[in-house]
Nucleic acid binder design. Structure first.
Lengths: 353, 353
DNA sequence: GTTAGCACTCACCAACAATGAGTGCTAATC
DNA sequence: GATTAGCACTCATTGTTGGTGAGTGCTAAC
């Protein structure tokens, strides 16, 4: 989006005025006029001067006018520069957020739980809709695996993943003649595959397993496939939404059709996942304003997302969706809070039993 | 609700008029006047007569008037008698529903999947919000179970439930001295417990297991506990919601506050589960109209639910939520369709691999 | 018991004027 | 040359007012 140079066309004064306009509009949701800026904000200028600057800003595309002789409203481009250059993260509320969080958090041991609680928290703080998407486990390793007989002609492969999640898969397999070797095979598999990622299960390892177990290759292969399946199945995501109805409180959604269109997107799992996955591409905090979003249905909304990860592994994303006229300062700050919180919680949660 | 006798106060003619009024109001959502009834519906009566009857019906509590000199609107009591006595299930659309269903249904093997599809179907048919709640498995039996070693000091109990769902639980247990007996124990457990329900695991059976395995009682007990846990864990429900935003299309929710209040309930998992569970109490089809609902927030909504089950076991519930002025004919008929469909699908789905 | 007729109620709508916030432009001021 | 005061103009919003029509309840005639 846009070359950074284009910001340079705005001098200090225009910047200050733009910030005042966006601040005011975010707060009042009414087109803001020159007089308001002159009076409420400490720019030492008369309304006439501000009027001129506003005309300039409109010409440059940072503002627009709903109708002639109304006040000005920020455009997407206006919000963009506001987000990129005119706000900073406000940590002053963090201690309050901590208090709120303590109130929720009773006994939470699992990462998924804390993510849910944080999603709820941020939805309450911001009064917008929030989402969290968590990979069930990305890039998981085999911690242990076993093949278990179930009934005639069927066995179950059980894989214990790196984070103690268990996956299993049932196979039709004829082991009747070699029931005792199944136990032996389990041990071999367990020994050979422990610590492996899905991509780490090479043909060489499979060959070793075949040799050491003395079992037939065509019996081993479906089992190994099942194990790989279990690892990959873990790539699935878990989606959690909070405060969908919050959107209805904001004047931009008083129009039922608009509200319906947006709520349909909010309820559409696939779309939301797609939106959140987009965030991971950049990493860190990401803001998508109005038309920058890939879906027309929410071209009057903005999305702010934060991806959380361990050193190298992407674990998931938390995001907030609200009208383009959202309180970016608050949303970005609180999402930064969430991000910090997660970075500090993740190591703790992941180790625990 | 209410003694059946109370219906008797309504003669044939009042019934016909009431039905006409409710039908018309459901369709038009406008208070319906005597003239409308006289003209559009084939009661051979003048508007004046109908006016008198309407005054009676209002006095008896079946109708009410939004303001003096407006038409009449059905009250909860009016809807109740309408539902109980004046509509019948309309099977004529069933073949159309079948067509729609074929369109969705691609390759669905699991009961949970077909329930989801049916939930989506009914939400599309009715244009209201629909829910399904499925017990992960209620009253499940052990089909097979195994104890699997994982790593030093830890083992995993794996239980295959009656419907091929797998549950597992990790235990800290010291089996190091008796690793070979673990395999033996697995076999004994499997043999002894196959077919058992949670309540069916008696002390006698446990004693037998202890005796036959020759293992220590304090080693066996936590394992059995884990198996029972797995069975009971299966009592959890899975909730699925479809078409929440459909509600916004109906005039009664054009008011944002009303919409918000109702949507909050729709999004509140616990409340919805509670609502759906209520349905099972009666079994079959159940209609709760307006104030009959336990939650004030939806006292201007109605809920129609259908519970599906095998012979004796309750499997879950599908429900529809809409404004009190909902198209009961359509909702009840299509829900009946769903119920039939499930009754015919359930045996198939449950057996299949 | 049923219906025609009539006076009355009340939400809804269209037309109209008044209001006021905000603009753009021009001319005076620093 | 930049800033500001002043002024005419625009246009959404609000309030008023009177008319319209769907509907009622009641009474008297059938």
């Amino acid at each position: 989006m846009g070359d950074d140079m284009s910001y340079e066309e705005l001098d200090q004064r225009k910047m200050r005025i733009l910030k005042a306009i966006v601040d005011d509009y975010i707060q009042s949701m009414e087109p803001v006029g020159s007089r308001t800026i002159a009076k409420k904000y400490e720019v030492g200028l008369s309304s006439a001067t501000i009027r001129n600057e506003m005309a300039d800003l409109e010409e440059m595309g940072y503002l627009s006018q709903p109708y002639s002789s109304a006040g000005r409203v920020p455009s997407d481009k206006g919000y963009r520069i506001y987000v990129d250059r005119l706000i900073e993260i406000d940590e002053s509320k963090f201690s309050e957020y901590n208090r709120l969080l303590n109130y929720y958090e009773q006994e939470i041991n699992e990462l998924g739980q804390i993510v849910k609680v944080l999603t709820k928290l941020i939805s309450n703080i911001t009064q917008y809709t929030s989402f969290s998407m968590k990979y069930k486990t990305k890039n998981s390793i085999v911690k242990a695996c076993q093949v278990v007989p179930i009934e005639k002609g069927r066995a179950m492969v059980v894989v214990l993943l790196g984070n103690d999640l268990v996956r299993n898969k049932i196979l039709n397999i004829d082991y009747s003649k070699e029931l005792d070797t199944l136990v032996k095979l389990s041990n071999i598999l367990d020994r050979k595959l422990a610590g492996c990622r899905a991509e780490g299960i090479s043909v060489i390892i499979v060959n070793e397993i075949v040799r050491e177990s003395g079992m037939d290759r065509h019996l081993i292969l479906p089992i190994v496939d099942a194990i790989i399946d279990c690892l990959q199945q873990a790539e699935e995501v878990e989606l959690y939404t909070e405060g969908a109805s919050n959107l209805l409180m904001h004047p931009e959604f008083f129009d039922v059709n608009r509200a319906k269109t947006v709520l349909e997107v909010v309820h559409d799992t696939d779309t939301v996942v797609q939106l959140l996955k987009k965030s991971a591409e950049t990493g860190g905090l990401m803001v998508r304003i109005g038309q920058e979003n890939d879906f027309d249905e929410i071209s009057d909304c903005s999305i702010v997302t934060a991806t959380f990860r361990t050193n190298d592994v992407e674990l998931g994303t938390i995001g907030v969706l609200g009208p383009t006229r959202m309180d970016y300062q608050k949303v970005i700050s609180s999402l930064e809070y969430i991000r910090k919180k997660l970075n500090q919680e993740i190591p703790r949660r992941l180790e625990g039993s």
